[in-house]
Simulated scan of single mutants.
Amino acid sequence: MEHSSKIYVAGHRGMAGSAITRKLREKGYNNIIAKTSKELDLRDQKAVHLFFETERPEYVFLAAAKVGGIVANNTYRGEFLYDNLIIEANVIHAAKLYDVKKLLFLGSSCIYPKLATQPMNEDALLTGSLEYTNEPYAIAKIAGIKLCESYYDQFGCNFIAAMPTNLYGPGDNYHLQNSHVVPALIRKFHEAKVNGTPVVEIWGSGRPLREFMYVDDLADGCVFLMLNYDQKQFINIGTGEEVSIMELASLVKEVVGFEGDIKMDATKPDGTPRKLMDSSRIKALGWRHQKSLAEGLKLTYDFFRSEDVRS
């Protein structure tokens, strides 16, 4: 991939896609194609094929997806399955038809079984049942992985897939009902601080363990893989570090400067009890994340305040 190569970032306005776009520009890639969902509905196969036929991108980062937290995943199950299936199928198939040199499909750590052996390595895929609350999204992402693998096998397409751990950072969704845990906590603690609320209530027991990665580190990993990885086997991108939800909440509380108390609502679902990915394969290739959780949370909160990104 040369600095002048024509690169399409699908989902460039999302958290991951915008980070990939920033990272590409930072590294000197100056021929990036980007279309908003209004300009190009990736669920429309004819529109996708016309775009690829007209633009002829050489490299594709497929970061477009319908995403959300536990509530959104469990509430809009049909939409999460259908939209993600059709987006990835349209883009991957068009990339094959119009001779894209290389495609990177961005998946999710929720593809792994709910009770997978920890840390979860790539061989754990399809070895057990999925977490019910995000099963449709996970199934769609698994289908995307398998589509890349199948096109790699049948047609010789250099289509690779990367599975990031839980992400946070600039470009996240801060809706209190439909967001992931980090942005939801940032907004809750910020509003409690501003309003003088004495207690912040958080879903679940606080015991589940999670791994979090600053989204710009994920973007760096994706560019690294596009330049250095050409195997059919999908590959994890993570930090290898985990924290409990209670510990995360305490970190966010400190970063925001909230001085009240935290109350856990154990009547609400925890989700998967533990999610730590084994990222030894990408580390063996020479890549590692740069930002600690504390550093990333501070940068994210600074962005939240400066951009007024609440919705």
Results as ranks from 00 to 15, higher is better:
228 N>A: 13
179 S>W: 00
287 W>R: 03
35 K>R: 15
208 P>F: 10
24 L>Y: 05
284 A>M: 07
107 G>W: 03
301 Y>I: 08
138 A>C: 03
2 E>I: 10
141 K>Q: 10
182 V>Q: 10
103 L>T: 03
294 A>H: 05
245 I>F: 06
283 K>I: 00
303 F>D: 10
116 A>S: 10
148 C>P: 14
123 D>N: 09
267 T>H: 09
161 A>Q: 08
288 R>D: 10
50 L>D: 13
77 R>N: 03
2 E>S: 13
256 V>H: 11
85 L>V: 08
61 F>H: 03
144 G>Q: 11
293 L>R: 03
102 K>F: 00
6 K>R: 15
175 H>L: 03
259 E>D: 15
295 E>L: 01
34 A>T: 14
302 D>W: 09
172 D>G: 14
139 I>M: 07
269 P>L: 04
9 V>T: 06
12 H>R: 04
68 G>Q: 10
164 P>C: 13
85 L>C: 12
134 N>I: 00
28 G>I: 02
148 C>K: 08
63 A>I: 00
262 I>W: 02
101 K>Q: 02
304 F>M: 14
255 V>K: 11
57 P>N: 05
64 A>R: 12
272 T>V: 09
143 A>M: 09
302 D>L: 08
126 L>D: 07
272 T>S: 09
155 F>D: 10
30 N>H: 14
235 I>D: 06
249 A>R: 09
160 I>Y: 12
16 A>C: 07
241 E>G: 00
187 R>T: 02
135 E>K: 08
18 S>D: 06
208 P>T: 00
195 N>G: 13
255 V>M: 09
207 R>Y: 01
106 L>D: 03
177 Q>A: 12
125 L>T: 07
231 Q>W: 00
125 L>R: 11
115 L>E: 11
